[in-house]
Design a protein around this nucleic acid. Structure first.
Length: 410
RNA sequence: GGACGGGUGGGUGAGUGGCUAAAACCAGCAGACUGUAAAUCUGCCGCUCCUUGCGGGCUACGGAGGUUCGAAUCCUCCCCCGUCCA
């Protein structure tokens, strides 16, 4: 591999700081970068992720993008899959003990994670590690030694545990092990920098301390803000349903991104795009003065984000589609098609269930009564309405605001 | 190990024998209004059947039995959580 030419310290620091919530400690990071420029040796920067869910969403990409930034600066990006620690579960932000994952679930999740992560990271330059490499090999003796390096009072200081204690909610003992075992990751990787979301701060600080206990220089820590979900209030997460998955179809992503509030769009610009901060400030100013319509600013955001995952072409298509369906109220150009064989007439409500547009017949009837169902642009609110399936034809079905389906009888 | 408190619908949480598919709030969905925004207003919000009616049936208040014409509510046993004591 050709020796990497590093950019000047100040330039690197400025690039890496964009969007960051906190750097602990900035002087240390600067010194490390300085050292690497002088020695020509890249920094070892890692991000640990627990494969607890099968898909990653935009919230995860915030910190991944930051890892990519380090990669851009020529440093070594280590993507650490917490396959072992995932079986404990990170107590961060948890109001209750999570059911431990099985080995199979973890493996399956890890695999899909990796596929998705390369939409952001440079595959060629990423070092992928699994923490079972060292954690699974630890003996009870090693674990006891590790635990000996930390105090219970310090552990219980953390917000998650404290509030659970106050609310008289259970805390399992193994949860206390989480920060300690993941701290050992930093030791094993001999990392210079670790990235994480702000809510990871406690864990990250423990990692620094344990590194020192094991005779290493403590890593610098860079945290990124939490991405607020589509609801504009809580953090983006799958379980809250306020997320945009990165494997979702462009049209789907577009619709979701457009549904965020105007206020929220600015933090999305900051955390999900590479627009330099001054440019974002200018856009914001233009919207404020009325020079730029908020919907156009939001459409540009959606376009940019989607282009990153699906390419420019797909983003443009999604954008056009959105314009046609929602701004001009026309039928979508590319509603999903569903073939159905000819047969006897069928109730609309049953058909909606069959097509998975709703989850039950009760729900279908509800939706119809409320005027949320349209057939070829005409509202269908008679719950007894049947559809003639006896001869070939084509219908455009709408169920609710966003679900369209082109039904083809063959 | 002992004493006490608790386990209700996606979440919080009311309900101590029938009027309870279960208050209220949140989340969610639909309609109106819009920029498919947000906010707001209105309605819906277990499943299922039909003759779509303030209609019938089924399922539901940690689990299993029991008392009763009738149980989320009473009794018994079990499981789980917390508090205090050891």
């Amino acid at each position: 591999m050709a020796p990497t030419k590093f950019k000047p310290v100040e330039e690197q620091l400025a690039y890496l700081k964009k969007g960051a919530a906190e750097i602990i400690r900035e002087e240390e990071l600067k010194a490390k970068i300085d050292q690497s420029v002088k020695s020509g040796k890249p920094l070892r920067v890692y991000l640990g992720v627990d494969p607890t869910a099968p898909d990653i969403h935009l919230g995860h990409t915030v910190v991944l993008r930051k890892l990519r930034h380090f990669q851009d600066m020529g440093h070594t990006a280590i993507f650490l899959i917490g396959d072992f620690s995932a079986m404990i579960g990170d107590p961060t932000g948890q109001s209750e003990t999570r059911p431990p994952l099985t080995r199979e679930q973890v493996d399956a999740n890890a695999k899909t994670y990796l596929d998705q992560v390369y939409k952001i990271l440079d595959r060629e330059k990423t070092e992928v590690r699994f923490n079972s490499e060292w954690l699974a090999k630890m003996t009870s003796y090693d674990t006891v030694r590790l635990c000996g390096h930390y105090r219970l009072a310090r552990m219980l200081e953390r917000e998650d545990f404290r509030s659970r204690l106050e609310k008289k909610q259970p805390i399992s003992v193994h949860e206390l092990l989480y920060p300690l075992l993941t701290a050992y990751d930093a030791v094993a990787l001999q990392s210079d920098v670790e990235l994480g979301a702000t809510e990871q701060k406690f864990n990250l600080l423990v990692h620094r301390e344990i590194q020192r206990e094991y005779g290493q220089a403590s890593q610098a820590v860079l945290t990124m803000p939490i991405l607020v979900g589509l609801d504009g209030e809580r953090k983006m997460s799958k379980s809250l349903g306020n997320y945009v998955g990165i494997t979702e179809a462009p049209g789907e992503m577009f619709g979701k991104l457009m549904s965020i509030s105007d206020d929220l769009m600015w933090s999305y610009y900051e955390l999900l795009t590479d627009f330099p901060s001054p440019v974002i400030v200018r856009l914001r100013e233009e919207v404020r003065t009325g020079a730029l319509h908020p919907i156009d600013a939001k459409m540009q955001l959606a376009h940019t984000v989607i282009a990153g995952f699906h390419g420019e072409e797909a983003a443009r298509k999604a954008s056009d589609e959105f314009r046609r369906v929602f701004r001009e109220r026309q039928a979508p150009d590319e509603a999903p098609r569903h073939m159905i064989p000819q047969g006897t007439p069928k109730r609309m409500s049953a058909l909606l269930v069959e097509l998975k547009l709703v989850s039950s017949r009760s729900e279908a009837e509800r939706l119809m009564k409320q005027g949320g169902v349209e057939l070829d642009g005409v509202r269908v609110d008679d719950v007894k309405r049947e559809i003639d399936l006896s001869k070939p034809g084509e219908y455009l079905l709408r169920a609710g605001k966003k679900k369209f389906l082109r039904l083809v009888i063959e």
